[in-house]
Design a binder for these strands. Structure first.
Lengths: 342, 342
DNA sequence: GTGAAAGCGCTAACAC
DNA sequence: GTGTTAGCGCTTTCAC
């Protein structure tokens, strides 16, 4: 069983002490140029790789970051990971991935069993209904920096990186207004949801700002799924007064809305404008293509990781709050005039 | 700066030796029941977490697996990760994620700098045009097990886990035949692509098996993108003879095909049947919904990781090849009769 | 059943 | 400039 090359092997081969080899490898202190070159040559020849656990033992740093999040299958979180990964790679940190499946139970067991001494920092998106807040606090008390992203607990004093749901919703509605729609309804999320609440506020404030009427009956609350969107919209269309545009809390519900509108024989865009939120890949593929607010997923990952590394760098750190704007993506569903045939 | 609790702290507090504490913690050898319980109690009280790098130093095992893949943003690879993660979690292994961005250069630098001594095993999907084969071999020579998945180098003797592209294509075409389509074309991938080649073979063999005509001119080769699919299909439709069904090499091209068919005023399903490959989330959302072969992404991750752990368990191991079938998902695009209105 | 001591691979005083 | 020594946190002989 071939062991790995260690500095000891190099030392023996060169009749040097391990410390000299260690110094030469890291190019620190004063090492004779020749010695250093010889060491480097042998290291290369023997395919030497430093044993990080050992260096970590001494330096009390593992260059490991843990990322804890609910899912990885979807578009959003996997893009966030890309952003994290990008920064971690540049700074030579490892990303250790943990998935909770959005289960508070699994999250809790995961956190409790987490090998914190093995970690330089944590990046966490909490699962819905998380019960691990006390444990997050404990980890932070050990001096290990933590940055929360996307889904953040509000009872904890720590850095957070989130997107600006309020502003995104505001801009979605402003876009509708700019395209000439005047009677705007909202297919909202559950009343209890923080995210849904913020988007609704953005919706309402945008209406006010643009002097448009607010019709309570045009705001439909339910879950986040496509089916919910379909049902909400079907109910909305039964009212005697109809909106001429709809802002949906996310793209899934917006797509449900599209189906309901099609079922009712309504031309999307011309008769009723529609905008979603997320920029799900599906939005570019449905027909007509769906206008939406693109979430800054990659950016969230990037900034979270940068912030964490900053905390790791200084031993003491003050929490920061980062609010990232989304980007309006105008597509066919908010086009009042059909595009010219090509 | 609060340090982490170590076995030394526990030992001191209990007036025991570190070795006894170590033994008690791992419940090994004969430790007095009372002693053990006291140790466990104090460990709990002090929030003791073992320092994995230290245990790893001694046991020569880190419980770390590296996963190296081209992307993480898309649906496919992120689902694979879920599968890996699931198994790793159950067996108490960490997953360290590395992304190559499908760049051979970055893959190479990543592999070269990989802290292999810190790893118990590797899971790799190589990037296109990979130049790292020699390095993979080197890693395997150190005795570190490697399992390749999805994208596998054919010049290396190692375990691989891949989906059955041939069979998937075969079944897609068999499905078309079963629905009564007789004149089937193929929107294929690039001629050089291994994956595209296998799917084409499956297509051809299925035609033969069902006694259907093979028309060379109905096989269009180009890239994998939606735009390619649109262009291919537009060209196909210009021919004087038209197929009554199309098998596309992937869902993206199939969606391009859908657009081309719609542009030509053709009713998808009734006039021309269409089936893709991948079960991209978009396939369930386009209109009509797209029949497809679902890739066993989660399963690939799961099996790869299981296989790797098996290799890690036994110190010597023989390569295995795992071929995973996809699943037919029949949707509206292969429906010859429109569904009854609800 | 428990303790003392050595050692995993590496770094950092401290000598010389 | 280089070697010696101690020690990071843990496990594992080997004593007793």
């Amino acid at each position: 069983m071939s062991r790995f090359t260690t500095i000891k092997d190099i030392a023996k081969k060169l009749n040097l002490s391990v410390s000299t080899v260690s110094r030469a490898l890291r190019n620190t202190y004063d090492v004779n140029r020749e010695t250093r070159e010889k060491v480097l040559a042998v290291a290369n020849e023997l395919h030497y790789r430093p044993a990080l656990p050992a260096t970590g033992l001494v330096s009390r740093s593992s260059h490991n970051l843990a990322v804890i999040l609910p899912f990885v299958g979807g578009h959003y979180f996997s893009t966030v990971i890309s952003g994290i990964q990008e920064v971690a790679y540049q700074h030579d940190y490892n990303v250790i991935l943990h998935i909770t499946n959005d289960s508070p139970k699994r999250e809790l067991s995961l956190i409790r069993n987490l090998a914190v001494p093995n970690l330089d920092g944590l990046l966490i998106a909490v699962s819905s209904g998380s019960e691990a807040t006390a444990h997050f606090q404990k980890i932070m008390n050990t001096g290990t920096p933590v940055v929360f992203f996307d889904r953040v607990p509000d009872t904890i004093k720590a850095s957070r990186v989130v997107q600006d749901d309020y502003l995104g919703a505001f801009e979605a509605v402003a876009h509708l207004a700019g395209r000439g729609y005047r009677h705007i309804g909202h297919i909202a999320g559950p009343e209890g949801s923080d995210l849904a609440q913020k988007r609704k506020m953005g919706f309402l404030d945008a209406l006010k700002k643009h002097g448009l009427p607010v019709k309570k009956r045009w705001i439909m609350h339910s879950g986040f799924s496509q089916e919910n969107g379909l049902a909400d919209t079907a109910a909305l269309l039964k009212q005697k007064e109809r909106p001429d545009a709809i802002f949906a809390v996310n793209d899934q519900k917006a797509i449900g809305t599209m189906i309901a509108l099609k079922n009712a024989g309504i031309t999307i865009g011309r008769e009723i404008g529609l905008i979603g939120f997320a920029n799900d890949p599906a939005a570019a593929v449905v027909s007509p293509t769906l206008s939406t607010i693109a979430e800054p997923a990659f950016e969230i990952g990037k900034r979270s990781c940068e912030l964490l590394l900053k905390h790791i760098g200084r031993r003491s750190f003050i929490p920061e709050d980062v609010l990232l704007p989304g980007t309006l993506i105008a597509r066919e569903s908010t086009l009042r005039e059909p595009p010219l045939p090509q």
